[in-house]
Amino acid sequence: MLEINDLHVSVHGKDILKGLSLTVPPGEVHAIMGPNGAGKSTTSYTLAGRDGYDVTQGSIRFKGEDMVPLPPEERAAKGIFLAFQYPLEIPGVSTLTFLKSAVNAQARLRGEKELDAVQFLKLIRETAKGLNISEEMLKRSLNVGFSGGEKKRNEVLQMALLKPSLAILDETDSGLDIDAMKLVAEGVNALRAPDRSFLVITHYQRLLDYIVPDHIHILAGGRIVKSGDKSLALQLEEQGYDAVIGKVA
């Protein structure tokens, strides 16, 4: 599904990623953990194709295709989805309008038929119900005045609607209490499928209690320094990053 090979990325002329390599096969959930400043957010922005994140070396292949030259909207249409750590507020644009624009823009880019208003409403109502998102919330301006939990649920709703092949969850647990996190995790787990992969980026182990990964990678200094199974997270929790990374180094 996703193959990252020797990826080097600089932001404002500063090298952040220095040789990151990672393979995520279809249907698997991989977690990237790392201390502050390790390059976690850079990884997610680079995969989504944000301006200013310059790939200076290495490659990102998604379903065998080179992603580096593609603008963000085309990557999205090909099935890459980034759940933002801090979802943006757009005043005056209702969540419903935004979602419809996104679903149809991707359909257009893929050469598929756009949904009409009735089909779309039916689709979104069904999807929203499962995530405990009220119709009133859909009518409000996108993320404006939403609580932290509502914003993250809105991200999961988008994911459910857009049906990506690869979902990147960037620090999805930040700013959430346990109940909100459980709700979000349930939403994510419901979307797990043999043809869908997840890349869960997080600082803390706690989210991984709810979204159980197949593999865990530790990112430090712009590279994956250690990989392992779920037990690695527990080890980190007990010993801290310094001890675990220190052992590696």
Partner: peptide, 8 residues
């Protein structure tokens, strides 16, 4: 960027 990443 948020819009672009959703395919718009």
């Amino acid at each position: 960027f948020y819009c672009l990443s959703r395919g718009i």
